[in-house]
Amino acid sequence: MCCACCGIAEGDDIKLKTCTACKSARYCSVKYQKEHRPQHKRACKKRAAELRDELLFKQPESTHYGDCPICCLPLLIDEHKCLMMTCCSKRICNGCDYANQMRELDGNLQQKCPLCRRLVPKTQEQVKMNNLKRVAAIDPVAMCQMGSIRFNDGDYDTAFEYWTKATGLGDVGSHYNLSLLYKKGLGVEKDKKNSCVISFGSGCHWRGPIILQTRKMVGKREQ
Score class of each variant (00 low, 15 high):
Lys184Phe: 15
Lys165Thr: 01
Tyr27Pro: 05
Gln126Lys: 10
Asn194Asp: 07
Cys6Phe: 04
Val30Phe: 10
Gln145Phe: 08
Glu79Phe: 00
Ser62Ile: 09
Asp67Lys: 09
Cys96His: 14
Lys193Asn: 15
Thr86His: 05
Phe160Ser: 04
Trp206Asp: 15
Arg215Glu: 15
Ser24Asn: 13
Leu178Phe: 04
Pro121Glu: 07
Ile210Phe: 12
Cys144Ile: 01
Asn94Pro: 09
Phe151Arg: 02
Leu75Lys: 05
Ala4Glu: 12
Gly7Ala: 02
Glu222Leu: 15
Pro140Ala: 00
Val141Cys: 00
Gly147Glu: 07
Ala137Asp: 15
Ile77Thr: 10
Gln223Asp: 15
Leu181Thr: 14
Lys34Val: 04
Ile77His: 11
Leu16Ile: 00
Asn152Ser: 05
Leu169Met: 12
Lys193Glu: 15
Arg26Thr: 05
Arg215Gly: 06
Arg118Asp: 14
Ala166Leu: 00
Lys34Cys: 06
Asp191Phe: 03
Ile138Leu: 14
Phe160Cys: 00
Gln111Ser: 14
Asp12Gln: 11
Ser29Pro: 05
Lys133Cys: 11
Cys44Ile: 02
Arg91Val: 03
Tyr156Pro: 07
Gln124Val: 01
Gly201Cys: 05
Met143Glu: 14
Leu109Met: 10
Gln110Val: 03
Leu73Ser: 13
Val30Lys: 11
Ile70Met: 04
Met129His: 09
Lys165Ile: 02
Arg117Leu: 08
Leu169Asn: 12
Met217Val: 06
Pro114Leu: 01
Tyr162Pro: 03
Thr18Phe: 06
Cys68Lys: 04
Ser89Val: 00
Tyr156Gly: 04
Asp171Val: 03
Gly170Tyr: 00
Gly11Gln: 01
Asn152Glu: 13
Gly107Ala: 11
Thr214Gly: 13
Lys216Thr: 11
Cys44Leu: 02
Ala99Asp: 15
Ser89Asp: 10
Gln124Ser: 14
Leu169Phe: 10
Gln59Ile: 08
Ala21Phe: 13
Met129Phe: 01
Gly173Leu: 03
Asp53Lys: 08
Thr164Phe: 07
Arg103Pro: 07
Phe57Lys: 09
Ser174Asn: 04
Pro74Tyr: 03
Gln59Arg: 13
Ile92Glu: 08
Met102Gly: 11
Ala48Asn: 12
Leu178Ala: 06
Leu119Glu: 15
Tyr176Asp: 10
Asp155Asn: 05
Thr18His: 10
Thr123Val: 02
Gly66Ile: 01
Gly173Lys: 02
Leu16Cys: 03
Tyr98Gly: 02
Pro140Glu: 01
Pro60Ile: 00
Ile210Asp: 15
His80Lys: 08
Lys15Glu: 14
Gln39Trp: 08
His175Lys: 12
Glu35Cys: 08
Cys196His: 12
Tyr182Val: 05
Ile211Pro: 05
Tyr162Val: 00
Ile210Cys: 12
Ser199Thr: 04
Gly219Met: 05
Lys122Arg: 11
Val141Trp: 02
